[in-house]
Computed example of a mutant assay.
Amino acid sequence: MTSWNDVEEAEPQFAARVRAILVARKHLTIATLRADGSPRISGIEVEFADGQLGFGSMPNARKGADLLRDPRFALHSATVDPPEGAPAQWPGEAKLAGRARCTGALDGPAPGLAFVADVQEVVHTHLNEAGDRLVVEFWHPGRGLRRVERE
């Protein structure tokens, strides 16, 4: 299993940028797979703790049932537009894909299931310093960090 800590150890600056985007807003979007294989999009909150990226599912929520049946997921940060007149200041967006591992009941007052991410891909999409090219940085376990610029 590849934990969030593994990403931080391999690429600390990249991981810090991605983490900042993921925690900048409370609500993110997660994609799971329904029983028929079609995608389901749900809102979600995440937490970084003890080197893990974790999230929960309320009792009887479909996303939790999806993840118990098929642990594959994709997580997407909140999306904001680049600042008018200063596109290079746009923090970009972050995406993470992997497999969710159920760790049992949620801690705290809310009932539900807790999950941690087995990280298989981390992506940061942003603009270059001039603000005129799209930059896609992506990290995979065992393959490291790659960067692609597009017009």
Results as ranks from 00 to 15, higher is better:
residue 1 M to I: 08
residue 1 M to Y: 13
residue 3 S to L: 08
residue 4 W to S: 05
residue 5 N to R: 10
residue 6 D to E: 07
residue 6 D to G: 05
residue 6 D to V: 08
residue 9 E to W: 03
residue 10 A to Y: 07
residue 11 E to I: 11
residue 12 P to A: 09
residue 13 Q to G: 09
residue 15 A to S: 03
residue 17 R to W: 02
residue 18 V to Q: 01
residue 19 R to K: 12
residue 19 R to G: 06
residue 19 R to P: 05
residue 21 I to G: 04
residue 21 I to W: 01
residue 21 I to P: 00
residue 22 L to Q: 01
residue 23 V to C: 11
residue 24 A to S: 12
residue 24 A to F: 04
residue 25 R to V: 08
residue 26 K to T: 11
residue 26 K to N: 10
residue 27 H to A: 10
residue 27 H to N: 09
residue 31 A to I: 14
residue 32 T to E: 05
residue 32 T to N: 04
residue 33 L to P: 03
residue 34 R to L: 05
residue 35 A to R: 03
residue 35 A to G: 04
residue 37 G to Q: 12
residue 39 P to G: 13
residue 40 R to V: 10
residue 40 R to E: 15
residue 41 I to S: 14
residue 42 S to L: 12
residue 43 G to D: 11
residue 44 I to G: 05
residue 45 E to H: 08
residue 47 E to C: 13
residue 48 F to H: 08
residue 50 D to K: 15
residue 50 D to E: 13
residue 52 Q to Y: 07
residue 53 L to S: 03
residue 53 L to Y: 01
residue 54 G to W: 00
residue 55 F to V: 07
residue 56 G to L: 00
residue 56 G to D: 01
residue 58 M to N: 10
residue 58 M to T: 13
residue 58 M to D: 14
residue 62 R to H: 11
residue 63 K to E: 02
residue 63 K to R: 15
residue 63 K to M: 05
residue 63 K to D: 01
residue 64 G to Y: 00
residue 65 A to W: 02
residue 68 L to A: 10
residue 69 R to V: 10
residue 72 R to E: 13
residue 72 R to G: 11
residue 75 L to H: 00
residue 78 A to L: 03
residue 82 P to H: 11
residue 85 G to A: 08
residue 86 A to R: 13
residue 88 A to E: 14
residue 88 A to L: 06
residue 89 Q to N: 14
residue 91 P to G: 07
residue 91 P to E: 06
residue 92 G to H: 04
residue 92 G to Y: 06
residue 92 G to C: 11
residue 93 E to S: 09
residue 93 E to G: 06
residue 94 A to T: 10
residue 95 K to A: 13
residue 96 L to T: 06
residue 96 L to E: 04
residue 98 G to E: 00
residue 101 R to H: 12
residue 101 R to M: 07
residue 102 C to V: 15
residue 106 L to H: 02
residue 107 D to N: 12
residue 107 D to Q: 14
residue 109 P to W: 01
residue 110 A to I: 14
residue 111 P to M: 06
residue 112 G to S: 10
residue 112 G to L: 07
residue 116 V to C: 08
residue 117 A to V: 10
residue 118 D to P: 05
residue 118 D to Y: 05
residue 119 V to D: 01
residue 119 V to M: 06
residue 122 V to P: 00
residue 122 V to E: 03
residue 123 V to Y: 03
residue 123 V to E: 11
residue 123 V to W: 02
residue 125 T to I: 02
residue 126 H to N: 02
residue 126 H to I: 07
residue 127 L to N: 03
residue 128 N to H: 09
residue 129 E to P: 08
residue 129 E to L: 15
residue 129 E to H: 06
residue 130 A to N: 07
residue 131 G to M: 09
residue 133 R to V: 04
residue 134 L to I: 03
residue 134 L to N: 06
residue 135 V to M: 15
residue 135 V to T: 12
residue 139 W to R: 02
residue 139 W to F: 02
residue 142 G to S: 14
residue 143 R to N: 04
residue 145 L to E: 02
residue 146 R to L: 12
residue 147 R to N: 09
residue 147 R to H: 12
residue 147 R to M: 13
residue 151 E to V: 09
